[in-house]
């Protein structure tokens, strides 16, 4: 068995495991911001690993799969950032055990409107 298929399969399984963990995170985490933490970072890594693994299994498609991975890498952080910011401005509360809210401090410092 070719070595690239072995490594590719391992990467695909690892990526799928990260996808699963990310999805588990968005179910178990207590509030929106924690869910985003799990649901964007872990799943992005899982997505990238899976795509690269598939590319290793089929080397002729590597370029296109890397292009997909590049687009995911460029677009997903932007939308996640915008979503977190928009949710905070819309007044989605932090979970009860939260200790510190630096964004609120920064908003107050700049004299901008602070959501209730």
């Amino acid at each position: 068995m070719a070595v690239n298929v072995v490594i590719g399969s391992v990467l695909v399984a690892l990526g799928a495991a990260f996808l699963f963990l990310g999805a588990l995170g968005i179910v178990r985490m207590p509030d929106l911001y924690n869910r985003m933490q799990a649901g964007t970072k872990a799943t992005t890594l899982g997505n990238l690993l899976t795509l690269v693994g598939l590319g290793l299994i089929e080397p002729a498609w590597m370029l296109k799969l890397l292009l997909i991975a590049l687009f995911v890498l460029m677009t997903n952080p932007i939308s996640s950032h915008a979503l977190a910011r928009g949710a905070y401005r819309a007044g989605v509360p932090l979970t009860e055990g939260s200790v510190r809210d630096e964004y609120r401090e920064a908003l107050e410092e700049h004299g901008e409107e602070v959501p209730s």
Partner: peptide, 12 residues
């Protein structure tokens, strides 16, 4: 967020 995760799962 769930939609985002579903998209990231569907792509692979």
């Amino acid at each position: 967020v769930a939609l985002d995760v579903l998209t990231l799962i569907t792509m692979p």
